[in-house]
């Protein structure tokens, strides 16, 4: 019971999937099996995506695809559309599981009070330039950045930005903040734009930032 990639998504195959009858069940199983193969390949190397997890996601993705089947407009291959849904579902669940038992407060316990400002540079940063002038310039920019993060961002923006930069994924972070991923993205995007504007107001250009990030030329 397997269908080639060319058959999956053909007009006849889709019609049978949408129809009611015994052939529909066969098409559903073909879809589920395709998603199993796709998920195994897409998530290969991900230690958290074991066989049981992939089986569950393939099943859930199949149901979701069936729910949304009328929204498939043929602007892409059906297998691409279906795989996109399945892979995104898998990552959402993996990321939720990763952060489920992590409290946002504990995660951000280091805070933004500047107490640990520039205590030490990363080895990579130190290696980039041993020019004292460059190091002093970098420290100055970092001090300004830390200050404008307190003056130009809302509390919510600071928390969201820091959590994201520290590695918390968007879906679980949005849930912990009581919002949705779309609103969270816009919140952080606005924060980044505010910081860029604030740095420019303080006389720090994007070229200055580039020099700090990529090292003095």
């Amino acid at each position: 019971m397997s269908a080639s990639v060319e058959v999956l998504g053909s007009p006849e195959w889709l019609a049978a999937l949408k129809d009611s009858g015994p052939e529909r069940e066969l098409r559903i199983e073909e879809l589920r099996r395709f998603l199993l193969v796709a998920l195994r390949a897409g998530l290969a190397g991900n230690a958290a995506a074991g066989d049981a997890f992939i089986e569950d996601v393939a099943q859930d993705a199949t149901l979701r695809i069936l729910e949304r089947i009328d929204s498939f407009q043929g602007r892409s291959r059906f297998t691409t559309w279906a795989t996109t849904i399945a892979i995104r579902l898998a990552f959402t669940e993996l990321r939720r599981a990763r952060w489920r038992d992590v409290s946002l407060d504990q995660f951000l316990a280091s805070g933004l009070d500047g107490a640990t400002l520039l205590q030490s540079d990363s080895p990579e940063t130190a290696a980039r330039s041993d020019n004292p002038g460059h190091q002093a310039h970098r420290r100055g920019v970092m001090e300004v950045l830390q200050r404008v993060m307190l003056t130009d961002l809302t509390d919510r923006q600071r928390i969201a930005l820091e959590a994201e930069l520290e590695g918390m994924n968007q879906v679980p972070l949005a849930e912990k903040l009581g919002t949705n991923p779309n609103a969270l993205y816009k919140l952080v995007h606005d924060a980044r734009k505010r910081l860029r504007a604030a740095l420019e107001r303080e006389g720090i250009t994007l070229d200055d930032v580039r020099e700090i990030v990529f090292g003095a030329s």
Binding site: G111, T125, M142
Partner: peptide
């Protein structure tokens, strides 16, 4: 926020565009 986070903040500022799609918009 430690030095690494501040560095990553600067990197994110460099990548920021005036108009960006959200992840949900990209998904569509």
């Amino acid at each position: 926020m430690n030095s690494y986070s501040l560095q990553r903040t600067l990197e994110s500022i460099l990548r920021t565009r005036e108009h960006e799609l959200t992840c949900e918009e990209v998904a569509r």
